[in-house]
Each structure stands twice: as C-alpha cells, then as structure tokens.
Simulated scan of single mutants.
Amino acid sequence: MRFNWLKKLLSVSTLGFSVWGIFLISASSVQSQNSNEAVSFRSYNLSDRYIRHKNFVGYIEPIGDELGRKDATFKIVPGLANNKCSSFESVNFPGHFLRHENFQIKLSRRINQQLFREDATFCIKNRLFGDNPHSSSFESLNFPAHYIRHKNFELWLEPSDGSDLFRQDATFIITNPLYR
C-alpha cells in the first residue's frame, strides 16, 4: 500500500502538566491526533499480539483473520471526559469505546454518564519501558498512576508494582491500523 505514515508520540510532563500530540505524517500532509485516523496497538513484550476486543472484553492476541483485524483497530479520539487525554473508539463497533469496569478493560457502548466518560478516557504517556519512539502507555484519567496492562492475555487497569514486567506489560506500540 502507498499509505505509509509515521506516528510520533510527543509527551512532555512537567510538574503534573502534560502536553502531548500524535502526528500522523504521510507523504504529503501532517495531520493532528484529532484526525480520527485508525491505529492498532501492538504489545511491547509480546510482539505478535495486539490489543483487541472479543465478546466485548479486552485482550492481546495474535491477529490472523479479518474479524481480528477489525477488533484490533481503533480510532484515537479526544477524551470523552477530558480533551487533553484520549478515548479509543472501536472501528467495527462505532460508538463503542474501551473503558475500565471493575478494573477490567472492556468495550462498551457510549452512554451519557460522567463515570462512563471518565472510565473511557486515558492519557497517552511516554512509554514505561523500552526505547521504541512509537510506544506509549495509557494512564487512566480517573485512577491516576493506573495503566492499561496485559496479564494472562487479558487487559486490566492496574497501578505499577515497580517491576520491569509490569512496565513491559503496560507498554504498547502504536502501529498502522490492521484493518482499513
């Protein structure tokens, strides 16, 4: 495909103030994070696995079929509860967002409740592990210092235990979308 683009995540945190933007660079244009471009999120430490939803629950899995590619593709949109952060909307279920519920990451239909908006808003932060410039970690808006991480291939929202394993499990590489 001719659509080759580079995603660059910029995150500057100083005294609790965070400024960030995702820039999608194509051959002829630069678009901001709010362009609703689709992306996929690859696990940092299990590089054959991507964030996906299956039966409305968040997992990381190898992707081998069209349904998997659709389930593993999201739009990064302005945060439902805070425009300085982001929400992740499903491409194959428009109006459904990744959110945490009882600390498990699920795909849920958007409802007009403040708790839902907060649960579905994540601040994209510098990666917790590694040196890949396209990797990031996703911190909960309403549970600061809690990050999306995979554990037993399921996605959970948890605080860091300080281990390298946690930092690896909570780091994801933003990639071209698996489904177009």
Rank of each mutant, 00 (worst) to 15 (best):
K7C: 13
L10K: 05
V12E: 12
S13C: 13
G16W: 04
G21R: 05
G21L: 13
F23N: 09
S26M: 03
S26F: 13
A27Q: 14
Q31R: 11
Q33Y: 11
N34L: 12
N36K: 02
N36Y: 00
S40C: 09
L46A: 11
K54N: 14
K54D: 14
F56E: 07
V57R: 14
V57F: 06
Y59L: 12
Y59G: 07
E61R: 11
I63H: 05
D65Y: 00
L67K: 12
G68T: 04
R69V: 02
D71I: 01
D71T: 07
T73N: 02
T73L: 09
T73P: 01
I76Q: 02
P78Q: 02
L80P: 01
N82M: 10
N83R: 15
S86G: 03
S86Q: 07
E89S: 00
E89G: 05
E89Y: 01
S90V: 01
V91K: 11
V91R: 06
F93K: 10
P94R: 00
P94A: 00
L98D: 10
H100A: 00
Q104F: 12
Q104Y: 05
I105S: 02
I105A: 01
K106Q: 10
S108K: 08
R109F: 01
R110C: 04
Q114T: 11
D119P: 09
A120C: 04
A120I: 03
C123A: 04
K125L: 12
F129Y: 14
G130D: 09
D131G: 06
D131P: 04
S135M: 08
S136T: 15
S136C: 10
E139C: 03
F143P: 02
A145R: 15
A145V: 13
H146P: 03
Y147G: 06
R149K: 10
H150Q: 12
H150E: 08
H150S: 02
L157F: 07
D164W: 00
L165D: 14
D169C: 05
A170Q: 11
I173C: 03
I173Q: 01
I174A: 02
T175N: 13
P177T: 06
P177M: 05
L178P: 08
Y179T: 02
Y179Q: 07
Y179W: 13
